[in-house]
Design a protein around this nucleic acid. Sequence first.
RNA 1: GUGGGUAUAGCUCAACCCGGUUAGAGCACUGGACUGUGGCUCCAGUUGUUGGGGGUUCAAAUCCCCUUACCCACCCCA
Length: 441
Amino acid sequence: MAEISNIRSVKGMHDLLPASSRVFSRIEAEMRRVFSQYGFSEIRTPVVEETRLFSRGIGEETDIVAKEMYTFLDRDGTSLSLRPENTASAVRAYIEHGMAVSDPVARWYYAGPMFRHERAQKGRYRQFHQIGAEIFGISDAAADAELMHMLMDFAAAVGVSGGRLGINSLGCAACRPAYREALKSFAVGVRERLCEDCGRRIETNPLRVLDCKKEPCRAATENAPASADHLCADCAAHFARLRSALDAFGDTYEVDRRMVRGLDYYNRTTFELSAAAPAEEGGDGAGLGAQNAIAGGGRYDGLVEILGGRPTPAVGFAVGLERLAMLSPWAADPLPPAVRVFVMAVGEGTLEPAAALASGLRRRGVSVEFDGSDKGFKAKFKRADKSGAVVAAIVGEDEARRGVCAVKSMTAAMLPGGEKQAEVPVADAAAYIETVLRHEA
RNA sequence: GUGGGUAUAGCUCAACCCGGUUAGAGCACUGGACUGUGGCUCCAGUUGUUGGGGGUUCAAAUCCCCUUACCCACCCCA
């Protein structure tokens, strides 16, 4: 006991007690409602995949793969990993089930836990939850725009609005290398003005220099070449098409020349939905802390092929469920009552009629908390009150002997007959209570 | 991996700065007033190795050191 009481949840992995789990559930219900309106269907992929799926798909050099995966050996020596994100798995499933042949245009969404071994902080956890959507088989930027529109629609549906949608284009395999070199030589030119981290980034990932938060770095890269200005003709046309499609959907967005996304597989379109800045930074006070990205996404036209499928264009996004929940006004809503009726059995010979009544009510679709414990009336009424039940059904020894049951209104509202408590035969009680509930509702 | 902050009852906190008897309050919980009936009120009760270890001192929740956990931030990202 002494030792076991020290067991806590693993760092960065948290329990969701009813008050928070309800917010998650409501958000997921909105996800299903909104996404299905856009023709998306839910997929569920395993939490564990072969490690090489992620190292090949997300990129060997990314922080996620290089140092944040929960990796272990299976009994046969295969390296497995807890998924750090869901896109690679979705692509694997798309290929594995031959979607390219049977149903090349797939619109999928998912929700579930992801795992990254990072230092936890506000809005960033080792087990966290993402909601995401992917469209396979369409290269036209109208798909990108529709996806963003769905994201904005979804955020609004859970009460989160006022976010900022930033978009950018990273180019493709044809134009990105040249841009990367141009940016790199620019960065080398201003190296003395950059921070230590950025000095390193010039070699490891020059695009990252652009989104450094430090003011000196931002000033130094003020006139850095932007990827949007170095696109090949096809990518430029795609980006222009994206903007007109966003206009067509009526979304407001900002072209963010500094926006870079961390996963290797992105090409062309990238986008990010970020929360309004917190009050101390002059925003309207949305409390997300330093992790203000609610959702991120982009196009990954090369990924299906990289993972062994036939070339298939694709776009997707992922939303941080914890972050969305923090911003949702639902987080402040009180937990609604769990049941409408409280059935209590008090004393000898009362269990059977009371249990039959509870079952009868539940069969009629009425939620019931049943108390057959050895406590007295007072204690059970206290429980009944706390449960939030509107009606209490009491089977005491006296009632059981006479084949009846007492029905009491727990609210100010009276029973149909005008009294607060009535006695009805147990056999009729379920039907009677059902009508009472209809009146009290 | 690197910084900073915090740690007192189940929860929110007081007492710490300036060491001084049995470490308090509200909420919650249990019981009673009300012999088989909740809410409101009143009364009573339970709850702590003051995160852990060491040191200073006649005396440590309080001062010092170490350690652990959590939080926040860097990094990175949802």
